[in-house]
């Protein structure tokens, strides 16, 4: 059997995104292309106006809910662990544990295996399937929280802090800033796990995706719209809203709200204070530093391509441990590398 090809000979970064040449498709392209494989439904990964889109059924449902017709002219659902061969490249989707339907894309070509993990986390999440590590030659990892200061507490602990605050300030509504896809539903599911059964109040922008999660089998309990609720009704209640609405005049309808936010960024106090947050909840859908470094060890790839965030620190760390690591943006642009 001939030696496996060098990864850069068949997968590289071009202006449209990460291009898998023998298959003629892109993974999470940033510009409209003919054929796209999409890891998950967040807007920086799933963009509109591609022609053929391959993704998990949940991701496609999210894209249809967000983009309608613009989600793509041919949407091809692919379940986890049902491989497909495209132009000699075997494509397989494996759970990434990030949000509902999120997948890693496992690519194999002539004995060379590259895993594009998309966004991922390792902690438990009642709203999606957990990350599964796949041994590979190249591991493409995110680094959103790629600094050793990002080491997150258990989400149950953070939900406990929200409930304690609610007990301490029973006359105030607790307004929690959450991203519409993933964080919102995870916070709801965590509250339900903690035994909080009261209705939760939603900003209008969050309703559609919560409905979608419900139809995909994620039970969220009683949800009510904020619109139409009186100030008195909102006292002592938990209200979820997108981060942009929390700072907006929209939030004035709450009675003296406790401003909370659920995000990995809440780990750094000054960041939280800049956003006017009174109750920072460190709940992240991205891998923290320990998860990033442990995952790199686990998949044990000799080569690590780092993208999305603080590449420098993670590249430094992986290099110290004897792996060939670099920022993904540079892959394909370093002519002499590996020659």
């Amino acid at each position: 059997m001939p030696a496996a090809p060098r990864p850069e000979s068949w997968i590289r970064v071009v202006p449209e995104g990460l291009y898998v040449a023998p298959g003629g498709f892109f993974v999470d392209p940033v510009r409209p292309v003919e054929r796209a494989v999409v890891t998950h439904g967040h807007a920086d990964h799933a963009r509109p106006d591609n022609r053929h889109v391959l993704a998990t059924p949940e991701t496609l449902a999210i894209m249809r809910a967000r983009y309608g017709e613009a989600a793509g002219s041919a949407l091809q659902p692919m379940s986890f662990d049902e491989p497909l061969t495209i132009g000699g490249v075997t494509v397989r989707l494996v759970p990434a544990g990030h949000v509902l339907g999120s997948a890693q894309v496992v690519l194999e070509y002539r004995g060379s295996r590259v895993v594009v993990s998309g966004d991922y986390k390792r902690g438990a999440d009642p709203t999606c399937r957990p990350f599964e590590p796949v041994a590979c030659d190249v591991f493409v990892t995110e680094a959103t929280f790629g600094l050793p200061v990002f080491r997150n507490p258990a989400p149950e602990h953070e939900i406990g802090r929200l409930l304690s605050s609610l007990a301490l300030f029973p006359e105030r509504s607790h307004l929690v800033g959450v991203y519409a896809l993933g964080k919102c539903q995870r916070v709801i599911a965590l509250l339900r796990q903690a035994g909080y059964a009261a209705p939760l109040y939603l900003h209008g922008a969050l309703q559609a995706l919560c409905d979608l999660y419900e139809t995909q089998g994620v039970a969220l309990g009683a949800l009510r719209p904020v619109a139409g609720a009186s100030k008195a009704e909102l006292a002592g209640k938990i209200v979820l809203a997108p981060p942009s609405a929390v700072a907006d005049r929209w939030s004035r309808r709450m009675p003296d709200p406790v401003i909370a936010a659920a995000s990995g960024w809440m780990r750094v106090r000054q960041r939280a204070r800049q956003r006017g947050v009174e109750l920072p909840l460190i709940i992240s859908d991205h891998a923290d530093w320990d998860e990033l470094t442990a995952t790199i060890e686990e998949v044990d790839a000799p080569e690590i391509w780092v993208t999305h965030g603080r590449e420098e620190a993670l590249v430094h760390h992986a290099t110290l441990r004897g792996r060939r690591a670099r920022a993904l943006a540079l892959v394909g642009f370093e002519e002499d590398e590996g020659a």
């Binding site: 600094l147 000054q270 760390h317």
Partner: peptide, 19 residues
Amino acid sequence: TLFALSYDFVGDLAETVSL
């Protein structure tokens, strides 16, 4: 290097060390 990158991002010694 990791400490320097982290301190640069966080901006406060007590917080950087504690994290």
